[in-house]
Simulated assay, not measured.
Amino acid sequence: MDFNNNKAIYLQIAEHVCEHILLGSWKPEEKIPSVRDMAVNVEVNPNTVARTYELLQQKGIIYNKRGVGFFLSLDAIQQVQHYRKTIFIDEELPQLFKNIYLLNIGLDDITRMYQAFIEQNFKK
């Protein structure tokens, strides 16, 4: 996994886990990789993954079955959407709006580019 220097690694791993959930490669109530396995997969210290899993537990996205491992919550998709939407609205959207304004990009242009993006990346 390639990490961005502008954001804490444990938060980037949380985004990685959330993407697996939103894309459907990990299903609700399904066991997810152990802390050690995830640490090996993303090439970080297990303590970093443990911090990620602690955050995701606090957000209601995963839960721990003691002695068995971590599992996605039944409503993991909704919890991820809420968590990621909050981050997007609070942190990313203001910068996006600023750039749209400064670059004089019209809403029609945004709509057209968004539709093209969806067609290219998510419709098969």
Rank of each mutant, 00 (worst) to 15 (best):
M1D: 06
M1P: 15
F3N: 08
F3L: 10
F3T: 09
N5Q: 12
N6W: 04
K7N: 09
K7R: 13
K7M: 14
A8F: 07
A8W: 11
Y10D: 14
L11W: 04
L11K: 14
Q12T: 09
I13V: 13
E15Y: 09
E15R: 11
C18A: 13
C18I: 03
E19F: 06
H20E: 11
H20I: 00
I21Q: 00
I21N: 01
L22V: 13
L22E: 02
L23S: 12
L23M: 14
L23W: 00
L23T: 14
G24W: 06
G24C: 02
S25L: 00
S25N: 11
W26K: 03
W26F: 07
K27N: 08
P28V: 05
E29R: 13
E29W: 02
E30C: 00
E30D: 10
K31P: 09
P33L: 03
P33R: 01
P33D: 04
S34L: 00
S34M: 03
V35E: 10
R36K: 07
D37G: 00
D37M: 03
M38C: 03
A39C: 08
A39F: 10
V42W: 00
V42A: 08
E43I: 07
E43P: 02
N45Q: 13
P46M: 06
P46D: 07
T48M: 12
T48Y: 02
A50L: 12
A50M: 08
R51K: 14
Y53L: 09
E54R: 09
L55Y: 07
L56M: 15
L56C: 05
Q57M: 12
Q58H: 10
G60A: 05
G60M: 00
I61M: 07
Y63Q: 06
Y63P: 01
N64R: 11
N64A: 10
K65C: 04
R66P: 00
G67L: 10
V68R: 10
F70G: 02
F70W: 13
L72Q: 04
L72T: 02
S73H: 08
L74Y: 07
L74N: 14
A76Q: 04
I77Y: 05
Q79N: 15
V80N: 03
V80P: 02
H82I: 11
Y83E: 01
Y83W: 14
T86K: 13
I87E: 13
I87N: 09
F88L: 14
F88V: 12
I89C: 06
I89R: 04
I89G: 01
D90N: 13
D90V: 01
E91C: 09
E92V: 12
L93Y: 11
L93G: 02
P94R: 07
P94E: 11
P94V: 03
L96W: 01
F97L: 15
K98A: 08
K98I: 07
N99F: 06
N99P: 02
I100Q: 06
I100T: 07
Y101C: 06
L102I: 09
L103Q: 13
L103E: 13
L103F: 11
N104Q: 12
N104F: 03
I105W: 04
I105Q: 06
L107M: 12
D108S: 13
I110M: 13
R112D: 12
R112W: 01
Y114V: 11
Q115G: 01
Q115A: 14
A116M: 12
F117Q: 10
F117P: 01
E119P: 00
Q120F: 06
N121Q: 15
N121K: 14
N121D: 01
N121T: 13
K123H: 06
K124M: 08
